[in-house]
Design a protein around this nucleic acid. Structure first.
Lengths: 126, 126
DNA sequence: CAAACCTTGACACAGCTCTGGTAACGTTGG
DNA sequence: CCAACGTTACCAGAGCTGTGTCAAGGTTTG
């Protein structure tokens, strides 16, 4: 299959920055589902590779998790859910500016900071 | 404050089905932010109470978590994030029906089943 | 003022998320 | 045939989610 442009899981891992383990996890999350060969091997085509790369960028840029994107996908597919969530959010009662994002934003930022800290400690333990 | 229609956290808890602890947690999640009295007491008005009740219904009906709704709220407020997620999902390459929701849906259902099981065991341990 | 609230902060704990392994077993290619 | 690679299933472990409880200290109200 030297001429084919579908990569196996290890090859796809190298060119996308995911680990093989994570490619399987991403698949189970429903976000990138590669074709399968007759014998069950995952086959990543150009489209899947691109999606995997942009997915990485999305997660890193906004500090969101796979589960968040999975939920967005679920909302995309489930009209009832999408509508219910939209209605609840639309009913932002009275002062949406009361939120001010003060406390909440600070909390979010601290969470991300904690994340960054642990990541830095892992990559530069000294 | 007998004539006022704002409830304290324990009163709000009783009429909404949340625990006081969870009301604070819901607040920190950014989903329902009650006013505060001069001395810092949380004051739940009719609007907040209604939002808390409908939030419960939303979570139970669709088996979603507070974090999911929080993410939806974050997308609602952050246009960049919303757009990035939308673009990634829009790029559903080729076969969106390939997904079929077969494996993925089964996985989701098993997750919910596990949740239900543990909940049942807790409420009816025998 | 004292009982009964409220507030924040911390400890605890089960279950889920995200990752990395390892094991047991099938597939591919030289 | 056999080394290299793929597959699923399971163990592991750190960190986050969702809850409960408790402590130390302010507030409200009879």
């Amino acid at each position: 299959m030297a001429g084919d442009d579908a990569l196996t899981i290890h090859e796809a891992a190298e060119t996308t920055g995911w680990s093989p383990r994570m490619l399987r996890y991403v698949e189970r999350s429903g976000l990138v589902l590669p074709e399968r060969s007759a014998s069950g091997y995952r086959l990543y085509g150009p489209a899947e590779l691109q999606r995997l790369r942009t997915l990485r960028e999305l997660l890193e840029r906004f500090e969101v998790g796979l589960s968040d994107v999975s939920f967005a996908l679920r909302m995309r597919r489930d009209a009832d859910l999408r509508e219910a969530v939209r209605e609840w959010l639309d009913a932002q009662p009275s002062r949406p500016e009361h939120v001010d994002a003060a406390d909440w934003l600070r909390w979010e930022q601290e969470k991300h900071q904690r994340l960054l800290n642990t990541q830095l400690m892992e990559t530069a333990p000294r």
